[in-house]
Design a protein around this nucleic acid. Structure first.
Lengths: 214, 214
DNA sequence: TAGATTGTTAATCGATTAACAATC
DNA sequence: TAGATTGTTAATCGATTAACAATC
């Protein structure tokens, strides 16, 4: 995947811009925006240049236009529909999370194998896992979130792909095999925390060493 | 941060190795391990070389030794203690998530500003936000997880750092400022999903184009 | 005009991959 | 011994940063 990092930054820019907008700004320079997300200004201009976003020399960028443009690139000018599979801790939390709706992503349903957890009347309906395929096809769902145990994840992915899902966010801590026509993005919470542990330990050791040398 | 990617892969290797072990393997070649996490075999050998992990020419690597070695590098040979701040959807789900405990990470407490959610008798106690500083100091907590709204995140970080936290995993969708002696790792769920949406759209367009040309 | 900022090209840096000698 | 695999050096590739001409 080319420019994966640029795309991630575009989302971050959009986020920062919304904040800057509520703070009362109308226009912005590459320098400020860079600061807001922690990169340097050439990075911002380069990213924009890749996606054909242009500003005014001397005048910077119009925030409203910029957000509009970023939403277009990111496919967020229309509401995106998604489903979650797995109504455990993570799945249930994601279903309730307000951040998605705010960002134009609608969770249409949650699917769950345990009949006791099924609840079609809930705000976001929790449906039987067996109904997933039909639901995806009927509602033309393209995006799926996997929040099931490791042992079930591959099977869920296979069914999703079969039904027409084109993009998957996977929370199961295992590498899933997907055909080329489906994108998979992994979020591994333990790994993220392990990473923090490693680097904080490393940093502490480095600082101790510095202190000794001084 | 040097070798950030290598470290992330080390965690992935460890994960795969545990799986391979339960599948009955005792030793493994760089080739198999590469396959399991989706990189190529030089990457594996290079990563190991960076951290001084060696195997047997012709005989590959002993899985048990390898896991032990990786745990040492990742600081997982001892139980790591952490706290969560914010008992909302995400915070509560993380507290209940079994993946951390399995991996030698213990969540000692959750802190929450809303008195109605405070519950010191819970399996993992939910304590008043005001008690956080004291708790961190008394229990020598080094790792914190931020699962509060965007507007409170920076303040929570500042208090954590002040109390002695050295590493933070942040779920608030905002760039936090931290002093050099504290590591911050961000997980932005909306951004991850946006990323999936973008690349699946892109892929679909590319495939349509291919089909037209053929 | 002078000064500031964009947009792009070139330079640097780091990470991944290829190649292969060492060796079990 | 012949064959296979590691460990490391060199080559490639991509991403970030620096520099600066264009221009408002």
């Amino acid at each position: 995947m080319r420019n994966k990092n640029s795309i991630i930054r575009l989302s971050r820019y959009k986020n920062a811009l919304r904040r800057l907008k509520t703070m009362g700004f109308g226009r912005i320079f590459s320098d400020n925006l860079a600061d807001a997300i922690g990169v340097n200004s050439c990075q911002v201009r380069k990213d924009f240049s890749i996606f054909g976003i242009s500003g005014n020399k001397r005048g910077g960028y119009q925030i409203d236009e910029l957000i509009e443009h970023l939403n277009n690139i990111l496919g967020k000018n229309i509401i995106q529909h998604a489903i979650i599979v797995g109504a455990g801790n993570i799945g249930a939390a994601l279903a309730k999370y307000e951040g998605f709706e705010k960002d134009g992503i609608r969770i249409d349903a949650v699917f769950e194998a345990d009949p006791l957890k099924v609840n079609p009347r809930a705000d976001i309906p929790v449906l039987a896992a067996d109904d997933m395929i039909e639901f995806i096809q009927k509602n033309d769902i393209r995006i799926g979130i996997i929040a099931v145990p490791e042992s079930a994840a591959q099977q869920v992915l296979d069914l999703m792909v079969l039904s027409g899902v084109k993009g998957i966010l996977n929370f199961a801590p295992i590498r899933l095999r997907a055909p080329r026509e489906c994108v998979v993005n992994n979020v591994n919470l333990v790994l993220e925390l392990e990473n923090v542990i490693y680097f904080s330990n490393l940093l502490e050791k480095a600082l101790e060493k510095d202190a000794q040398e001084a």
